[in-house]
Amino acid sequence: MSARSGRRIVLWRHGQTSWNLESRFQGTIDIELTEVGVAQARRAARLLASLGPDAVISSDLRRTRATAAELAAVSGLPVSYDAGLRESYAGDWQGLTHAEIEDRFGEQYAAWKRGEPVRRGGGELETEVADRAAPVVREAVEKLPADGLLVVVSHGGTIRTTIGRLLGLAPESWEALGSVSNCCWSVLGESPRGWRLLEHNAGSLPEPVIGDDV
């Protein structure tokens, strides 16, 4: 990544939970971090703090609050919590493993995997998740200085849909962004053409951009 010019957004997924290990759909159910998840957050927080963030906002669920707390501890920044940054509400899917969802909701699950608009288990559409989460991020980043850095602590599905919305991508293409691993992050940078994806599913400090595409 080049030297700071324009605002940047780091979208940081929470650390590991026991339901992540079980491949169980969490949604808005309030699951805590494992000991490994806390250690992941502590390591990542030291790296992100070195970027000099100006503000931190977080989902209000326990797994994101605990992750954000590690960054607050090393950066000294307060954390603002917003329910708009919660994971997608997935209705009857929540608490089930992906195998159980596929078995009980096979057609719906297959349609979701194809990128079709689906109310998973009677829950939210991915566009509705973006409708609530992206404005929270936009409002927070607009308060930053011209070269400010915002850290957003959220969830895998919410991060993907928010990135898709901020980049102006068609919803059916959001799945192409791929997943974000526990305690990894993606970075968006402001440019004259709007937001750009600078890093995706990263777990180390961003590398400078050298070459013609700066």
Rank of each mutant, 00 (worst) to 15 (best):
L85Y: 07
E87H: 08
L71E: 02
R132I: 03
S88H: 06
P53E: 12
E107A: 14
R43N: 15
A99Y: 04
S75G: 11
G91V: 03
P53T: 03
Y109D: 08
G95K: 01
Y89H: 15
A49S: 13
G122A: 01
E100D: 12
R120L: 15
T64M: 09
V129M: 04
R42V: 13
A49C: 12
R63G: 02
L125V: 01
V79C: 12
T64D: 00
A133C: 07
G123T: 00
A45M: 03
R119C: 03
E102V: 02
E87D: 14
G84V: 07
A134V: 05
S88T: 13
L85F: 09
G106P: 06
D92K: 12
A134T: 09
L125F: 13
Y109E: 05
Q108Y: 06
K113I: 15
E107C: 02
L125G: 00
A72C: 11
R62Q: 14
G122P: 00
A111H: 05
R120T: 12
E124F: 08
R63D: 06
A72K: 15
A130C: 05
A134P: 05
W112T: 04
G37D: 11
G123V: 01
G37S: 12
E124G: 05
A66G: 07
A68V: 05
R132L: 00
G37Y: 10
D131P: 05
S88N: 09
R46P: 00
Y109T: 01
R63N: 03
L85W: 06
D92I: 07
A44P: 04
I57T: 10
Q40F: 10
R132T: 04
L51V: 11
G95E: 09
E70Q: 15
R62T: 15
T67C: 06
